[in-house]
Simulated scan of single mutants.
Amino acid sequence: MPELDESKQPKTAAEARDLLGRIAITEAAFGPEVVRSTPFESDPGRWPVLDEDCVWQTAGLPADVLATSTRSFHIPAKDGRGRLQLNATVTVHHNRQESGWETARAMEEVLRCPVQKLREGEELKNLWGGSLYLGEQMNGWTEDAFSESGEYVSTKHGGPHHYRWHQAQFGPVTVAVAGKSAAGYTDEDMVAFVVQGTSRLMIQAKQELGKAAG
């Protein structure tokens, strides 16, 4: 874990969007089977919010978020397997305290809403989550690690299928990858994609914001 170089922290939305572009990953980070979905990238001026009824909505960016981006990928259905879906999110805050609060809210959301509606015809069920600070239970790669798992159910894609969300933090940045499994995939198959994507995002965040060695 490198030391954060605070002089590299973005101070404006424009600087944050530039940093997003250097941290965000493409399909190559997951492997040759993974392709871009349509739409590929989220609206940079919008932010997901879990409302009081446990339904996901979008809203304008809150005051503690300088910029955020979610990119969507999938493995096409073929050879008896369904369509596996992956989302990679990078969020830039003003400082480490604000990014830490984002992780805390993620934990609160899964406790408050073990069943969540993504959109019409799509739900997450039986959710549970856990968080590990740096140094806890062999967590040596992120300041705060959060993971969430459960079941994904869709009128289009069937289910229940395995669902995973892994989130990590370095300084003012949080990175996360969510995976929605499909028929023909094991939980271990999907976790491998989620871990690989999260690891690549963290490597790039550390390269951009960490102090140079030596």
Rank of each mutant, 00 (worst) to 15 (best):
E98R: 04
R22Q: 11
Q167M: 14
D144K: 13
Q116H: 05
G31L: 00
E27D: 12
A205I: 09
L20D: 01
I203G: 11
S69P: 07
A212T: 13
A88M: 05
Q137N: 14
E122L: 10
T89N: 04
W141Q: 15
A67W: 03
C54L: 02
R164T: 10
V177E: 05
S72L: 09
M190R: 07
L20P: 02
V173I: 00
Y163F: 12
P48G: 09
L118K: 10
G150N: 01
A178C: 08
L4M: 07
V49P: 06
F170K: 04
R119V: 02
A67S: 09
S72R: 09
A29L: 06
L66A: 03
D187Y: 13
E208V: 04
E188N: 14
G179L: 06
Y152M: 03
D43E: 02
R164Y: 12
W141K: 15
A16N: 01
K11M: 01
T186L: 11
V110L: 10
A16Q: 01
H161M: 06
R83C: 00
V195H: 14
N87F: 12
S69C: 05
T70W: 02
Q169R: 13
E143F: 03
E148T: 13
D79N: 08
Q196C: 11
A176Y: 09
A24P: 01
R36N: 10
H161V: 04
K78G: 02
A16T: 05
H166Y: 12
V175W: 03
V191P: 01
M202W: 03
M138N: 15
A88G: 04
A28T: 13
G135M: 02
G197C: 00
S7P: 03
D5H: 01
L20E: 05
S149K: 15
C54I: 02
V34A: 02
G140P: 06
E41W: 05
A63E: 15
Q9T: 12
G60I: 01
Q204N: 13
L118M: 10
L84F: 02
R200N: 12
K78S: 08
T68R: 07
R112E: 07
C113R: 07
V92R: 05
G179I: 08
P32A: 10
G159Q: 09
Q207T: 12
T155K: 12
E188Q: 14
K156Y: 12
K78Y: 02
S72P: 03
W165F: 13
E151G: 11
R46P: 09
G80H: 03
A67N: 07
Q169N: 08
Q85M: 11
A24D: 13
W101Q: 15
G21W: 07
T142A: 06
G210V: 01
M138F: 15
R164P: 05
V194K: 00
G129E: 01
D51S: 07
Q57V: 00
V35A: 06
L4Y: 05
V115Q: 14
H166L: 13
D5V: 03
R17L: 04
M107K: 13
R105K: 15
G121P: 03
Y163M: 05
W165L: 15
T186N: 11
P2S: 04
V34W: 00
H74T: 00
A67H: 03
P62W: 02
R46L: 04
A16S: 04
A59D: 05
C54G: 07
